[in-house]
Computed example of a mutant assay.
Amino acid sequence: MRRFDGRTRSILTAAAVVAIVVNAGVAWAYWRITGSDTGARVGVELRLRGRSDFNRPLGAGETGNLTVTLTNDYDFPIRITNVRPAPGGAVADDEHRDAGCKDPKVTMTRDIFDVEWDVPRNTIGAFTIPAGLALALGEPAACRGATFTVPLQVSGFSQGE
């Protein structure tokens, strides 16, 4: 059985991520981490996606779960310590957007959520914030049952090994 080196694993991971990107909206987050060996602040990019719960669509005036998916392509584990809204608006899935759900008023229910999420090196982590999203009252019927993608920012640090 042939073992893949780190570069090959990175390429295969990148290919898997590209497949995900093709099928779903992805937001890029600029994330600051503290380098474990130098203590210097280092900026890295993480692929990050926030969306409403597939199993429980948001109704007008209701709250629902926020699912956050993070891709850690680095050779060190990371810990996410908070999640907050990023600039930009939520987007409904293609079917509901085509039906007229344009510029939906979906917001996070708090300005910042403190979390303790560990994402091992070279993996994808999925996490849930219960009641993390809200859909405003008075949204059009075209938005009923939609899955929304929302822009997010995260903060955290490397965990070193």
Rank of each mutant, 00 (worst) to 15 (best):
W117G: 12
I20L: 14
G43Q: 07
F127Y: 06
L46V: 03
A146I: 03
A15T: 14
Q159R: 14
V119L: 02
V115Q: 05
R32A: 15
A19N: 10
N65H: 03
A19M: 04
N72V: 09
L70T: 05
A24C: 01
A126L: 02
R32T: 11
Q159D: 10
G6I: 08
G88I: 14
T67M: 10
V26T: 03
G43L: 15
T71H: 02
F157D: 02
D73W: 05
N82P: 10
R84Y: 10
L66F: 04
A14F: 14
G100Q: 13
R9G: 00
E116C: 12
V91Q: 01
V26A: 01
A136C: 04
G61N: 08
T107M: 03
P120A: 00
T123N: 08
T8G: 09
E62G: 00
G39N: 14
A141K: 15
E62H: 08
A90C: 03
V21N: 11
R51N: 07
N72W: 06
G25P: 06
V83I: 15
I78G: 03
I80P: 04
V17Q: 12
G138Q: 14
G43N: 13
L48C: 07
F148D: 00
Y30C: 11
P87W: 11
A126T: 03
A15V: 15
D37Y: 10
G100F: 12
G59I: 05
P77M: 07
G25S: 12
A86E: 12
G43P: 04
T107K: 02
S52T: 00
P85A: 14
C101E: 03
T109F: 06
A92R: 01
R2D: 13
A19H: 08
A27G: 15
K105H: 09
T71A: 06
T8L: 15
D98I: 08
S10G: 09
P57N: 02
F148R: 02
A136I: 03
K105Q: 13
A131G: 12
R84C: 10
V18F: 01
R3V: 11
I20T: 12
F148T: 00
A146T: 04
A15Q: 14
T34G: 07
R3C: 15
G59N: 06
A99Y: 06
A146H: 00
I80Y: 11
D53G: 01
F54D: 03
D98W: 04
R110D: 12
D94M: 05
A86C: 13
A24E: 05
V106Q: 05
G100I: 10
A136F: 00
I20S: 08
A19V: 08
D114K: 11
P130M: 09
G156E: 05
I124F: 07
V68I: 09
S36M: 09
I112V: 15
A24P: 00
A27E: 10
W31S: 04
R79Y: 12
G132Q: 09
D103W: 01
Q153I: 01
T69N: 03
A131I: 00
G35V: 13
P120F: 13
A146K: 01
V18H: 07
I78K: 04
T109K: 01
S36F: 13
V22A: 07
L133Y: 02
G138M: 13
L48V: 09
G132P: 06
P85F: 15
G88Q: 10
R3H: 08
P120S: 11
T8I: 13
L58R: 02
G59R: 06
E139D: 14
T107L: 06
